[in-house]
């Protein structure tokens, strides 16, 4: 039961401080043991048991069971036969999960306008069939630099190029994109989006149709 201390004369500052050293150190170590060892340990065991796939980074496996990436972490794509994700400003190379982060370019920094223009030029050249404007997410770097998603218009823009370079039917690719659109939760939370790595992995499953590409 808590009870008021009965010491009438106030002790000196040093004595007051020293009196707290033992409880401070003991409690720090005891609570560190509970919240810094037992808690993360217990959580790891519980989560590995309940959600083993998520706990290990949501790996994507192909038909042979080989891990091809993570469903949550984007990969860099450059060749024309793949859908491209968003620009990335991670540390050493694009989409480097050992140094996540954004560009931190300010909203009026000319360097941002320059970078966006260069990306937009590259997209126009890489997708000659595209006439309209370019969705904003495809020319701006994400906050993590690992954003696995692009918006549906950003995926549709790339369909003709990907279909031609992959040698597959454009309508099949378009259909594939439509299948991979993740809608907002309950129509409210989040934005509709397409996971680029999953879409590209699915591309491999479309049978190649050389006649289509020749006709073009």
């Amino acid at each position: 039961m808590p009870a008021p201390s009965k010491n009438p004369s106030p002790p000196g500052l040093a004595a007051v401080l020293i009196a707290q050293v033992r409880p401070a150190c003991t409690l720090l170590l005891a609570l560190a043991l509970i919240t810094g060892v037992l808690y993360p340990l217990g959580m790891t065991v519980a989560i590995q048991t309940l959600f083993p796939r998520q706990a290990g980074g949501s790996p994507l496996r192909d038909a042979e069971g080989v891990v091809r990436g993570s469903a949550l972490i984007g990969q860099p794509f450059n060749a024309p036969q793949w859908f491209h994700g968003r620009p990335s400003s991670t540390g050493n190379a694009p989409y480097d999960p050992t140094a996540s982060g954004g560009s931190n370019l300010g909203p009026t920094n000319p360097a941002l306008a320059r970078a966006v223009r260069e990306r937009a030029d590259a997209l126009t050249q890489g997708n000659p069939g595209h006439a309209g404007s370019i969705p904003i997410d495809l020319v701006t770097a994400s906050g993590s630099g690992l954003d696995p998603h692009i918006s549906p218009p950003a995926a549709l823009l790339q369909v003709p190029r990907v279909a031609a370079a992959h040698g597959v039917d454009e309508s099949a690719v378009r259909q594939l994109v439509a299948q991979h659109v993740e809608p907002a939760v309950l129509g409210i939370f989040g934005r509709p989006r397409v996971n680029v790595l999953q879409l590209n992995l699915a591309l491999e499953s479309i049978p190649r149709n050389t006649e289509v590409s020749q006709r073009k």
């Binding site: 954004g102 909203p107 223009r117 030029d121 701006t140 994400s142 692009i150 918006s151 989040g190 934005r191």
Partner: peptide
């Protein structure tokens, strides 16, 4: 910037300022 960048809200994407932001949040 030219070529034109689509920053306006539409049915499929929200537009707005996306530098440093994630697509899944908007």
């Amino acid at each position: 910037v030219t070529p034109a960048i689509d920053q306006t809200a539409s049915g499929a994407h929200e537009g707005g300022s996306m530098e440093g932001k994630e697509v899944r949040f908007g």
